[in-house]
Amino acid sequence: MHEERTSSTAPSNRQALAWAAVSEVVDPEIPVLTIADLGVLRDVQVEQDGSVLVTITPTYTGCPAMNMFEMDIQLSLAKAGFDKTKIETVLHPAWTTDWLTQEAHDKLEKFGIAPPKGKAGRRALFGEESVNCPKCGSSHTERISEFGSTACKALYRCKDCAEPFDYFKCI
């Protein structure tokens, strides 16, 4: 059924359809963010033969979510009627939290994760960011650990509302 629908669609529509299908895929650990919000999704191309070439880039080199992304991308494209999918992982340019949109920042905060603060760049060896609590907004917070529940997050605690929370590290 999908086959018929997509094969009768004009190429530009198929391109949009493929993009829409891929950009729906969400992060398994942060389900409020799609791979498009994250900037993990770099490109979607529908080739002459109808196959789809998806280009993604990892947040962290060892990020275990990458395998999950690949499975979910294939699944999402298959559901939209694209059977042949090729996924390419590129490292350049290196992913940075600067690619997170304002919308992504808002979604993170609402979800209870403090969004990355400021621009990624050279940090001093002992520099500590001042991070606002995503629950009560207080800036009276402390870092518990540089490494949180996933590679991309650090663990903080709010000294005012006493809630522990994740901070999406700036890289």
């Binding site: 962290y60 080199t61 490292l91 350049h92 290196a94 992913w95 060896l125 540089e146 490494f147």
Partner: peptide
């Protein structure tokens, strides 16, 4: 070497945190 440079660009961000952790 472009591929080594690309690997380095990611690793450099990660090692910044590793160093800070060990130093602290």
């Amino acid at each position: 070497d472009k591929q080594l440079a690309a690997i380095a660009a990611k690793a450099e961000k990660e090692v910044t945190y590793h160093l800070r952790h060990a130093a602290e």
